[in-house]
């Protein structure tokens, strides 16, 4: 018997020997509670002095709805994003969090049949006001996408400055700006010697940081991130999370993430979205610490403890 077992991998052996079925549930339960505690502790560790929102100064949404054709995808989201903070939007897939993010800089309207209602207010101005120059809006509210997408026809340096070219902005100290943005995105040291190389020659994580640098080069007030780490390995994810934390000192970051640990690690505020078959709604929002340690809504608790999603 011993001989036989020794041919099996040790981990497997342990599992087989020490796991009567009835016990496992209890353990799972324990793990769940542990998870809440751990997320809360993570959130507590990283919590900082949190800015209070002053109306009319920063970035907020009022009763935002979104439709795709007849499908009501998102309902009645009112959220405030205080300056110099990171807000994480979490929730199961299909809950409308990405749709919400895309209404924030008017990327939503690229989908045929899309419609919206409500207001998105930046510096006291509704960005959906008729007559608004949408390109200016997108300059102020930058975006980083799920998949790294540097422009393949441009070099690394050109990629960083591509926003200036695209928006036809004039700037004299381009070299300085390039270095500043790459530094803020945590990429400068890795690419400073090969700024002339093509963007595609970088690794996935580096490409994503290049995209962040590109978004920073037009000096946005808000940076939207749509699951920026979902296509990356853990190492790259860590680097990007550091970058996000550093960015929070100067701009508003709104990040959609599937990863609750990530939300706990990097955000100051967390909003929980959920759809129960109808349009997605914002169920609860609060400081990240609160959401992960003592959520007020039962559904939030169920989600962050892993009962569903």
């Amino acid at each position: 018997m011993v001989e036989i077992n020794s041919k099996i991998e040790p981990a497997q052996t342990n599992e087989i020997q020490s796991e009567p079925r009835s016990k496992s549930r209890q353990e799972n339960k324990m793990q769940e509670t542990n998870q809440v505690a751990s997320l809360a502790s993570v959130a507590a560790q990283t919590s900082r002095a949190i800015n209070k929102f002053t109306p009319g100064s920063g970035f907020e949404t009022k009763n935002v709805h979104a439709w795709f054709g007849k499908h009501h995808a998102l309902a009645d989201v009112s959220l405030e994003f205080p300056s110099n903070t990171v807000t994480a939007l979490i929730g199961p897939s299909g809950c409308g969090k990405t749709t919400f993010l895309r209404t924030l800089n008017r990327m939503h309207e690229f989908i045929p049949g899309a419609a919206m209602a409500g207001q998105v207010i930046l510096d006291g101005q509704d960005i959906y006001e008729p007559g608004t120059d949408v390109t200016k809006i997108r300059l102020k509210i930058g975006m980083v996408f799920q998949k790294p997408n540097p422009f393949p026809s441009m070099t690394i340096g050109e990629n960083v400055l591509s926003g200036l070219r695209l928006a036809q902005l004039k700037r004299s100290n381009k070299e300085e700006l390039m270095e500043e943005c790459l530094t803020r995105a945590g990429l400068w040291n890795e690419v400073k010697d090969r700024l002339g190389a093509h963007g595609g020659s970088l690794s996935g994580g580096q490409q994503q940081r290049l995209c962040i640098a590109r978004a920073l080069a037009v000096k946005p007030e808000v940076l939207l991130m749509d699951e920026p780490c979902s296509a990356l390995d853990p190492g790259s994810t860590l680097r990007i999370e550091e970058t996000i934390r550093q960015l929070a000192g100067s701009i508003i970051v709104v990040i959609v993430t599937h990863n609750m640990q990530q939300a706990a690690r990097i955000s100051d505020y967390t909003g929980f979205f959920l759809s129960d078959g109808g349009p997605g709604q914002l169920i609860e929002v609060g400081t990240t610490n609160e959401i992960f340690s003592q959520p007020k809504d039962k559904r939030t608790e169920d989600y962050i403890t892993g009962r569903f999603g």
């Binding site: 390109t135 997108r138 975006m143 997408n149 422009f151 070219r165 695209l166 036809q168 978004a215």
Partner: peptide
Amino acid sequence: DRVQAAYALGATRWTMIRA
């Protein structure tokens, strides 16, 4: 995604096409 990246950087339709 490349088209959207360009628009997200404040591109006009023509600058997006060029880039």
